[in-house]
Simulated scan of single mutants.
Amino acid sequence: MCGRYVMARAVGDLLAEFDARLEEEVDIPPSWNVAPTDDVPIVLERLIDDATVRQLHVARWGLVPSWAKDPGIGARMINARSESVLEKPAFRKAVQSRRCAVPADGYYEWKQGADKSKQPYYVRPAEGSGLVFAGLYEWWKDPSKAEGDPGRWMLSTSILTADTPPPGAESTIFGQLTALHDRVPLPMDRATMEHWLDPEADDAPALVELVRAGVKDVAAAWRVDSVGKEVGNVRNNSPQLIRPVEALF
């Protein structure tokens, strides 16, 4: 599960890190509390004049299928289960030809205590480098807006998730993640990302399995820190949210 995450890097840094270009100027304010339906950066590749071009775009978090009657459905489509993404009507076309990478600095999870209160945790690479999740994107046309209206087309995205490793990994980072939630967002290393983004790659099942198979190695150096409950309110958004605190349970 990935329902809140951190993306605080500047546009210029993302362009350099992913060797991407802009199709048009974008504004992506840093956020330490990215929530569903927020605008987020994504990286995708397109074939332009027979050449593969990597671009940085801004998308709404929560995929809106092209056939949706209104964009409200996207709030329920922030994650796509990798085990069923090839069959689900909302995602099966996107996984074939509209795959993207979703940059992040880390993400949040919550664990419920005996008193029903929830302790938030921040999951991130131990060395402080960024993450990149496997994602999907889709374009939705607003039928209420006229042809030529720049707001007629909405770009949206979803993050792939996977079930965490089975029992037996308690002594690893995965043991901690399993204790927090039974699913994790799917991270990619750079080699996997190259395959995932390739617009000419057409074996979607193999690509999904490639990403799923690599999750353990990519996340091996992650760490989990307990953080303050302020992150639970989407109106709170500052670097203070990721500061480690003593866990309540």
Rank of each mutant, 00 (worst) to 15 (best):
S156K: 05
P150Y: 03
Y107T: 03
Y107F: 13
A94P: 15
T157A: 11
D105N: 12
R99A: 10
R124Q: 00
Y108L: 06
L131M: 15
D182V: 09
W139Q: 06
K141G: 07
Y137K: 11
E170F: 11
T157L: 05
E83D: 14
V85H: 06
E83N: 12
K88H: 10
G113L: 08
S156V: 03
G106F: 01
A90D: 06
Y137V: 05
A114F: 06
M154V: 06
H181A: 13
Y137H: 14
D105C: 10
V85W: 00
P120T: 00
P143T: 04
G135E: 02
F174K: 05
G151W: 00
A179I: 01
K145F: 02
Y107W: 08
S97G: 14
K88G: 09
M77I: 05
Y108P: 07
E109K: 10
Y122Q: 00
G113H: 06
K88P: 09
A114Q: 12
V85E: 04
L180S: 06
E147G: 13
E109L: 10
E83T: 07
G148P: 10
L186K: 07
S129N: 14
W153L: 11
S158V: 04
S82C: 14
P167Q: 02
L131V: 06
Q112E: 15
R81T: 01
H181W: 05
D163R: 15
G148S: 10
E147H: 12
F133A: 08
P150L: 00
E138H: 13
E170K: 14
P89E: 03
T178K: 14
M188H: 04
T161S: 15
I78W: 00
F91A: 12
G128A: 05
W140R: 08
L186P: 08
E83A: 11
E138L: 13
Q96H: 12
E170D: 15
E147V: 12
M77H: 13
S171W: 06
E170R: 14
A101F: 01
T172Q: 04
L186E: 03
L155T: 02
Y121M: 02
F91P: 14
S171N: 15
P187M: 03
D182H: 13
V132P: 07
T164S: 11
A101L: 12
